[in-house]
Simulated assay, not measured.
Amino acid sequence: MGNITCGFFSILCASNYQFEIAAWLIVVAMVLDAFDGRLARMMKCTSEIGAQLDSMADLVTFGIAPAMLLIKACTDFSSVFLWGVGSFFMICAAFRLARFNIQKNDNTTMSSHFYTGLPTTLSGGTIAQLVILDHFIQVKFGIDVVATLLPFVTFTLGLFMVSKVPFFNITGKIGLKQGVWLMMLEFSAAILFFVLTPVLTLSTVLSCYLIICAMYGVVKSRHLKKEYSTT
């Protein structure tokens, strides 16, 4: 519910040209989306309604809201072009979520190591962090490079979502199994860097993850298909 509420308010903020607030709301939704499933399992209150609601919330927050943010923030392009790119991204997000639900309902063997295609959460979050980064660069250096590249990045993200390229599930490796002290060290370092430079930390982490995983997935996709049944 917090996820979809953030998505709704992000759309409203983007419509009122409050781009940075709209982008940060998507980032907040990413955090909520990362913990809702784990929290439900810890409390032993998982349900089919929760699973369906999660996908609906993801479509709003990481499909529609980033598309709206793109359309409103990139003023150097024609409206028709931006509408086309935004619609394409939204459709790819819907397809990605539907494919995941079908795999889950059909009891397809899923691996905790990889995702099939780029998750919608990371796709929408990438657009949000690029908008935040664009505002930061404009204030500091007066350069408008990120907004110029954003439509093309958005189109590429849509292709990755509907592709079968395996993306490493880094969140599956973070937990109590790796040790309490190591987990606390990781979270402490992440919080420290985020407090010091939130914009650069967010952009660096997401960009490095996407670039490394995309290259790794493309090179190793044939090998991984033999060893893993990806989600």
Rank of each mutant, 00 (worst) to 15 (best):
S78P: 06
A67D: 02
Y209E: 03
M183K: 06
R41W: 04
P166S: 09
F193E: 02
T109S: 12
F136S: 06
L59Y: 11
G158T: 12
S15C: 12
I132C: 11
V146I: 15
P198H: 07
C74V: 15
F136T: 03
W24I: 08
P66K: 11
G50T: 10
I21G: 01
V27S: 04
G37I: 13
L133H: 00
V195N: 05
M215E: 04
F167N: 08
I132Y: 00
S221V: 02
R222I: 03
P198N: 07
A128G: 08
V139S: 11
I127P: 00
T5P: 05
A189N: 01
S79E: 13
V153S: 01
I170M: 14
L206D: 01
G158N: 05
F141Y: 15
G124N: 02
M43H: 04
L70I: 10
A22R: 01
F9A: 02
F168W: 15
A22L: 09
A65P: 04
D106T: 12
N101D: 04
C45L: 05
N107C: 06
S15H: 09
F77M: 13
A34D: 00
L157Y: 04
S123P: 03
F194W: 15
M68Y: 10
F155Y: 13
F35P: 07
V153H: 05
G84N: 12
W181Y: 13
Y216V: 11
A98N: 02
G37V: 11
A29H: 07
F136K: 08
T201C: 12
V219I: 15
T61Q: 06
K104P: 00
S10P: 00
I4C: 08
F100D: 02
G2I: 09
R99L: 00
A57V: 07
L182Q: 12
V27C: 05
S112T: 12
W24H: 08
I26D: 00
A40W: 15
G63R: 07
T75S: 14
Y209N: 00
L159Y: 11
T46A: 12
L196Y: 14
I132L: 06
T108I: 15
L69K: 01
Q52D: 08
K104F: 14
M56N: 07
K220A: 05
V145N: 12
L25I: 04
A67L: 10
S112C: 02
K225W: 02
T171F: 12
C213E: 03
G158M: 08
T156N: 06
G217N: 01
T156E: 02
I211C: 09
G37F: 06
W181C: 09
V162G: 01
I11H: 06
I212Y: 14
S229F: 01
L210W: 06
M68A: 08
I137V: 14
L39P: 02
G158W: 08
S78M: 11
E186F: 11
T61L: 05
I26G: 00
Y209P: 06
G142K: 13
Y228G: 14
G84L: 07
V153P: 04
Q138G: 06
F136Y: 14
D58R: 15
S221E: 11
T46Q: 15
V153F: 07
L130E: 02
A40S: 12
C6S: 10
C13R: 00
V205P: 03
L122K: 00
L39S: 10
A94I: 13
G7S: 05
Y228W: 10
R96Y: 05
S123D: 06
T108G: 07
P66Y: 12
A57H: 04
S111F: 11
